Computed example of a mutant assay.
Amino acid sequence: MILVLICALYPVLKTLCVQIHSAVTGSYVAGYHSVLLVNCPTEQTARDIGRSIMEKRLAACVNIFPRTTTMCFICIYSLVIIVFKYIILTGTYMCSLRAVHPYDIPEIISFPIDDGSQHYLKWMEDAVTDI
């Protein structure tokens, strides 16, 4: 029973431990913040997705890049890329993205941030709602 409870609370406990470690040592814990790339078919779709995520305060910042050419094995097409800067969250983030994305299988790729400006990373932390 205790093991099940610990497993269920793991994301919350991990976040709490990272915050305590960072506060006590004043250092950054690599991988706590991330950058997320999402491809969209149009700029309007990208804006709608970005707005939806920002309204829920799941990201600190959203950048929308204009049309880019994507080459796959069987085709070449245009896409708009969204870059989200966020703190690693539970499945809430992915569920929120999938709910508003028009593709059945959206390209959603996350990269952990190993290091960066401490002031900016702190700003990201303050900007994102704790879940």
Rank of each mutant, 00 (worst) to 15 (best):
Y93D: 06
I87Q: 07
S52F: 01
I87E: 06
L97N: 03
V100M: 04
F65L: 15
I81K: 10
R57G: 00
N63H: 13
I108H: 00
I87C: 04
E55K: 09
I49S: 01
L36K: 00
V83I: 12
I88L: 08
D48L: 04
K85H: 05
K85C: 05
K85E: 04
P66R: 13
T42S: 13
V100F: 07
T92N: 08
L97C: 04
L97V: 04
A60E: 03
S52I: 01
R51H: 15
I88Y: 06
P66G: 11
S78I: 11
V80L: 06
I105F: 14
R67Q: 15
R98M: 12
T90P: 00
V100R: 00
D48G: 05
C75I: 05
C61D: 04
Y32C: 06
T92I: 10
A46R: 01
A60K: 02
L36F: 06
T69M: 14
R98Y: 05
I76W: 12
T70R: 13
I49D: 03
R47A: 08
I81L: 11
R51N: 15
C72H: 12
I87R: 09
M71D: 11
S110R: 08
C72W: 15
I81A: 07
S52A: 13
E107W: 07
T92D: 09
T92H: 05
I53L: 02
I105E: 13
V38R: 02
G91N: 07
E43A: 12
Y77A: 12
P41G: 07
R51G: 10
T90D: 11
T92E: 11
C72D: 13
M54Y: 01
P102S: 03
C40R: 03
L36T: 09
P66Y: 06
D104A: 15
S78W: 08
T69A: 14
Y86C: 10
P106T: 06
I76A: 15
D48P: 00
R51Y: 12
T92S: 08
Q44C: 06
L79R: 14
Y93F: 15
I64Y: 00
C95W: 14
N39V: 07
I53T: 00
R57L: 01
C72I: 11
V62H: 07
S52V: 01
I88H: 11
I76K: 15
I87W: 00
I82A: 05
P106V: 04
R47Y: 13
G91P: 00
H101K: 05
R57H: 03
C75H: 12
P106G: 04
S52K: 02
F73R: 14
E43V: 10
V38Q: 04
R51S: 14
T90Q: 07
T90G: 10
Y77I: 06
A60D: 03
N63Y: 10
C75K: 15
V38E: 05
Y86E: 05
L97G: 02
Y86M: 10
V83C: 08
M71W: 13
M71S: 14
F84S: 02
N63C: 09
L89Y: 05
F65H: 14
M71T: 14
L89I: 07
P66C: 04
Q44V: 10
E55Y: 04
I64Q: 01
N39H: 12
